[in-house]
Design a protein around this nucleic acid. Sequence first.
DNA 1: CTGTTAGCGCCTTCAG
DNA 2: CTGAAGGCGCTAACAG
Lengths: 329, 329
Amino acid sequence: MVSIKDVARQAGVAISTVSKVLNNYPNVSVATKEKVNRAIAELGFVPNAIAAALSSKKSGRIALLINLNAQTQAIDEIGMQYMAGAIRQAKEYNLDLVTVFFSMIQDMTYEEITRYFLSQNIAGIIICGLSKDDYVLHELIQAERFKIVIVDAPIVNATTSSVWIDHKRAQYDIAKKTILENNAKRVLYIAGKKNGYVTDERLKGMNQLVQELKLTMLVRYGNFSELEARKLTFQYGQHKDIVVCASDLMAIGAMKALTEMDIFRPVCGFDGIMLMGYVGKQMNTVRQNFARISGEAVRELYSLMEENEGKNIVLDYEMVRMQYLDIIC
Amino acid sequence: MVSIKDVARQAGVAISTVSKVLNNYPNVSVATKEKVNRAIAELGFVPNAIAAALSSKKSGRIALLINLNAQTQAIDEIGMQYMAGAIRQAKEYNLDLVTVFFSMIQDMTYEEITRYFLSQNIAGIIICGLSKDDYVLHELIQAERFKIVIVDAPIVNATTSSVWIDHKRAQYDIAKKTILENNAKRVLYIAGKKNGYVTDERLKGMNQLVQELKLTMLVRYGNFSELEARKLTFQYGQHKDIVVCASDLMAIGAMKALTEMDIFRPVCGFDGIMLMGYVGKQMNTVRQNFARISGEAVRELYSLMEENEGKNIVLDYEMVRMQYLDIIC
DNA sequence: CTGTTAGCGCCTTCAG
DNA sequence: CTGAAGGCGCTAACAG
């Protein structure tokens, strides 16, 4: 393997000079920079990122800690989008991203997890899919030992930022739109997981809306499960004018129930997943650009690693009517 | 950060001795091993994998190079399963796995890719979703500079192994089963991508079957696209007794077409994806355990990195009737 | 602007 | 069986 030393010899300069041009230090004359670059090209030199990390004591390695439902829920489109967005952005910043699934750390203690990340020289972590009962992860966050960016949970401290959209407003907006379009009064709201971060926010949005429009609302928790939403719709849908769901997947469940019950009720979703297309129905939904959110999380982590303080970042969202004619058609 | 030096001091031994117990060297007395381990525990020492890699010149880092269709195809369930399986197995072997999407290397030259992997100290690569026109990747494989395991393509050389199921036989088996069950004679076969590795294999299986059972068969390429399969079924399905598809996704397309045409034809798929459940239909399909396949690929890569020769590994498969009652209920 | 030097944390002969 | 010493490839003061 050709090393920085070889380059130095070939270029007739010192090792440190090569290092400087490699890292774009200011104090290098154009002439020597030229020489060094030529030598690099001639030798086909590739800087060794591992050695650089060891020497500089900063690794540029980050972990994407993600709660994927690959087994139970068949297709976790949202998780995929998160991954894709994060990986792309990490590449952009020249960060080395390792993907870690919740399932691989679920049996570890706080110490073991810390040890794992430490041994891997991981400087920053992005967490997607955190829930309130992931105790060890909360410990990890509170320890403030790593720079962390949390997607979709409002935790901020000296070393932790959060990135998400305004779920309260988004839920308010999309439900209002759908309700007004359909002149509905009696709402069945299928919320997410009790005590979930986003679930609570979205519920707040609904409560505000109910007050404003003088609606009646029945709230039930569907745990983001298609099946549970389906059952709830069977149970309560008949005497409601509309079904508002806190996720698209649950909206699919609600729609399937309504189809089987052979009644029409407008359904309102949340997320904007493509999977909707496979079901072949239409509905209003909030579209979150998940890839963008996780990309933004990487960006924020990057800035956090440069000694900044944690902050709360709120992104925007779209409201769309899902149809996916390109797929269904 | 507590280092090996601190441990050595605490235990009252030399650095090298600590290193030896860390790496399970034979020549260490039980007594000193004891001492060292106690010191490690007391200090909460975490060996630095980066430094170890630099020093030992072997990294234990591998890359999963995967062709994910997150953008075009909405949900790439297969890719997800590949990822999950590989990541799990890598953890098992204590390998450090970095995920790289095709999209991030698609504009790179062979040199750039090599440089990238080299700079990352990556010793082995697993490739999922290779197609015949990924020229730079073929260059990478032929260069034999990295240990590579290819999933679903029959390339083997000194540093390259391949892992897959017997697609020819699987296609033969599942089609035969479905054809005999339905007493069909005229087959519409929607193949994958022209000149694709698995496509060719599966087609061979069909050809053999056609001869054996004295069937007639129309072959068309659906490029693994649901939409194209849908169109092809519209065009040719009417006068066939059965539609055999080289993927579940295309089978979904075929089913949608048949529903709209309001005719019944048995459909046969390939893959065993859960997405089928969302469509709410039934069909025979080959079930490949993608997570297992990629896990096996990691295992093979591990053995390949221990100076073994490349080989061709063929896994088994199942034939199932998809229903997913738990999801559709 | 360039070179010298001292590590980063660990592994690995090689003496003892 | 244990310890001393010399790197791995690179960075970062500090001199010059």
